[in-house]
């Protein structure tokens, strides 16, 4: 069976652990990054089926990471789900335009997150 590897990018270790635990329980492999710079580096080193991406992070925020990631054709079909407290319509539209597949508002509901990741990852 092909490994299904998900990258979670969030500056909160607690959120990363919470999300990773739920996804690993559902059978995914998880790699973690604490900001957009590390996230891009991690994406380049791993064969991913999905990225979960916070917005407000130091060094490189999630929207900027998304735009840089999607500017590379090899990530064109990689599903990206934004996971954030932000609800600003202009930010949601920017993510959609850049190629994100979804936007989830914190606090995270783990069962909903796992089902969404499962659905989106299967399309990749």
């Amino acid at each position: 069976m092909t490994e299904r590897k998900v990258l979670i990018v969030d500056d909160s270790e607690t959120i990363r652990q919470q999300v990773a635990g739920a996804l690993e329980h559902a059978g995914f492999l998880v790699v973690e990054a604490a900001d957009g710079v590390d996230g891009l580096e991690c994406a380049g080193k791993n064969d991913l089926c999905m990225v979960i991406l916070d917005v407000n992070m130091p060094r490189l925020n999630g929207l900027e990471m998304l735009e840089r990631l999607k500017s590379d054709p090899k990530y064109a079909t990689l599903p990206v789900l934004m996971l954030t407290t932000e609800v600003q319509q202009s930010m949601i539209e920017r993510a959609k335009k850049a190629g994100a597949r979804g936007w989830m508002i914190k606090p995270v509901k783990l069962d909903q997150l796992v089902s969404t990741v499962t659905k989106l990852a299967s399309s990749h």
Binding site: V87, Q89, K96, G102, W103, I105, P107, Q112, T116, L120
Partner: peptide
């Protein structure tokens, strides 16, 4: 109103 609240998810 704002487009969403906690736990909401939008799929594009």
């Amino acid at each position: 109103p704002n487009p969403g609240s906690e736990g909401d998810i939008f799929i594009f």
